[in-house]
Design a binder for these strands. Structure first.
Lengths: 167, 167
DNA sequence: ATAAACTTTCAATAATTATTGAAAGTTTAG
DNA sequence: CTAAACTTTCAATAATTATTGAAAGTTTAT
């Protein structure tokens, strides 16, 4: 496999994987492109490489910046803006985990909390609703805590965690 | 909040959350409904409760069965089929984690493996592609391993894991 | 101040994904 | 065997989500 083919394969796979970590295709592809680029890319570069429109590029770059994954770079002597992504995979994972916790998991925990604390009217179905949503809340809480703990261990968190869990 | 309101809130929240664990809205809502039901439900019951068509119900029930989350129940004296879902949240999480690993993570690891082992032609961009996709492969491998380890600890895996990681 | 270089916005459109409903298929009771 | 009860399939349609492109907005150089 040659460079160009490998690159395209990587960018498109990462793109379709976007949904797995909760972002859209173009957004994931732009990030993938920046991730393997040896230098900052301009909007033109990105549009060209991915064959997507200016508007699309602009909107998705903004989202990536909102996530804190991509940053603007000023290149001296150039008028246009350039972009780079976080290059360290562990830091990247940390950012993604934090954002997903904040955007998706926390709000769900809140709803589960509300639903699981309704008044017990003594009926079987109410008891079941309370019991099951409470269990789900505990699980979600635990997973969220675990994820945040994993991600907050600065150095080599993953390796360390895998090691600890093997004991 | 009364039972009916709480139930609807739970079902719709869990439904829109579906995307987070990689399934569609109707599928997640059906599972949510079964999860808080005190008895097996028929297709009619589900259609009625969620106001969705017979076809939709049938297709999504099949998918839930493919995932191994929902099972058919035979109710004596009844001709139609009834359905139940796994009621234990930890077992549920275990099934979901296993399936997502198999369906989504493993295939990505395979692509990363392919891309990260292309021939190094000595150019900077090829070196960067190899380096970055290799790092991503390691991360993904580690996360997958971690997830499977977590999930294979039979009793109280989550609580135990959280405890271990606090040390 | 103004024009060129660039970015953002957003209504229109395209692409994708989910849902319906009726016909075809299957199972069971008599 | 046949009709009723039930489930599945799938082409058509609806709903949702992503993308375009051109106009409006912003910044910078002169």
């Amino acid at each position: 496999m040659e460079y160009q083919e490998a690159k395209e394969k990587f960018v498109s796979t990462w793109g379709s994987l976007g949904t797995l970590w909760g972002i859209n295709k173009a957004m994931a592809q732009i990030q993938a492109l920046l991730f393997i680029s040896t230098k900052p890319l301009s909007m033109e570069d990105i549009m060209e490489e991915l064959k997507i429109s200016r508007g699309n590029t602009s909107m998705n770059l903004r989202q990536l910046m909102d996530w804190g994954i991509v940053t603007k770079e000023i290149v001296r002597g150039e008028r246009k803006e350039f972009f780079t992504t976080e290059k360290d995979v562990q830091e990247l994972a940390r950012i993604v985990a934090k954002e997903r916790s904040r955007r998706e998991i926390k709000p769900v925990i809140k709803v589960l909390e509300e639903v699981s604390t309704i008044k017990d009217d003594g009926t079987e179905k109410t008891k079941e609703l309370i019991k099951q949503t409470r269990a789900l809340k505990h699980l979600t809480d635990d997973l969220d805590t675990l994820m945040n703990k994993l991600v907050n261990q600065k150095q080599n968190w993953l390796t360390k965690s895998v090691f600890k869990l093997m004991k």
